[in-house]
């Protein structure tokens, strides 16, 4: 499923990396615990779904080679987060939906989990 399709499904907005909105996402991991994200081994085309919206969530994606991040609950994504994401060619999408609702929609639409 493409990032654009995901964005439409969760009525979200692409905050950075619009030019990569056609990229295919293979699976999703939902977590607010960055240490847990850092344990993931196979992250090819993985999207991180998170309610943790700060510089460290972007840094964690950078270290984990995760290129796609979906921020839930309409949290504020700061300029320095966007700058760091752009430096790493990441796409950040934001939705007003909750973590549970977003997970449900994406799972029902066929996106698989990591485990």
């Amino acid at each position: 499923m493409t990032i654009r399709e995901i964005t439409d499904l969760v009525q979200g907005e692409v905050l950075c990396g619009e030019e990569r909105a056609g990229d295919e996402v293979a699976c999703v991991f939902a977590s607010d615990l960055m240490s847990d994200v850092l344990t993931l081994k196979d992250v090819d085309n993985l999207m991180l779904l998170t309610g943790l919206c700060n510089l460290q969530s972007v840094r964690t994606c950078e270290m984990s080679d995760i290129n796609y991040m979906l921020v839930v609950r309409g949290k504020e994504v700061t300029e320095d987060m966007l700058e760091l994401a752009e430096d790493n060619d990441m796409v950040i999408v934001r939705t007003k939906y909750s973590m549970f609702k977003t997970s449900g929609i994406l799972y029902a639409a066929g996106l698989p989990p990591v485990y």
Binding site: L33, M34, S35, T39, L52, N54, Q56, S57, T60
Partner: peptide
């Protein structure tokens, strides 16, 4: 609050 502090750091470093 930063998404750490769950007691996974040192085990993660080891792994």
């Amino acid at each position: 609050e930063m998404g750490f502090g769950a007691g996974m750091g040192l085990p993660n470093i080891k792994n």
